[in-house]
């Protein structure tokens, strides 16, 4: 069951990666493309065990590294630790409402963007505070909306399924 769940989530990450690189990379808001891959990694990591979350993150990073990475492995590590930290920090059993998940997603994306900017400046790449702010807001807000909608949809599906099941039980 766990393996099936993990496979489902990995497939989800792959679909999100395809959408990101083929559709969302073409959208520009203040020169920044929205990033649904980070948001998907965060959302799926929250509902996963520590190892599964790290695996999901690592897989998202692997895809990014293989198709676009300069130095193989950097994105794998970043996404893997993102998944790991989100899974550690957020209790999957607690009631994570869509709004809370949106906030978690925003904070995680903002932190990741700051880490990336720090790493870039450490390696001597030019960085701009304005672009970092735009990146945090565009990717953060978009990620928050994605997480909000995902959790909202999941809750609705779960409610409907519960209703259908209770209806079946009543009929029996």
């Amino acid at each position: 069951m766990k393996t099936v769940n993990n496979l489902k989530k990995l497939t989800g990450i792959y679909i999100v990666f395809l959408l990101q690189s083929l559709i969302f990379e073409n959208i520009r808001i203040f020169s920044c493309p929205p990033d649904i891959l980070i948001a998907a990694t965060i959302v799926l990591s929250v509902s996963s065990e520590i190892k599964s979350a790290a695996l999901l993150g690592g897989f998202a990073g692997l895809l990014t590294d293989v198709m676009y990475g300069r130095v193989f492995g950097i994105n794998i590590l970043m996404y893997m630790y993102l998944g790991l930290l989100v899974s550690l920090a957020v209790d999957k059993k607690s009631d994570n409402s869509p709004l809370i998940m949106g906030w978690i997603s925003f904070v995680c994306i903002a932190l990741m963007e700051i880490v990336v900017a720090l790493l870039k400046s450490m390696f001597g790449y030019p960085s701009s505070a304005g672009f970092l702010t735009a990146n945090i807001f565009v990717k953060g807000i978009f990620g928050a909306i994605f997480a909000f909608l995902y959790v909202l949809l999941r809750e609705k599906v779960a409610k409907r399924r519960k209703k259908a099941l209770s209806g079946e039980e009543d009929a029996q």
Binding site: S21, E25, Y68, Y125, P126, S127, S128
Partner: peptide, 14 residues
């Protein structure tokens, strides 16, 4: 072109 990744520093297409 089957993919692209463009940020403020790097611009890569696949």
């Amino acid at each position: 072109v089957i993919g692209r990744s463009i940020d403020e520093l790097h611009s890569t297409i696949t």
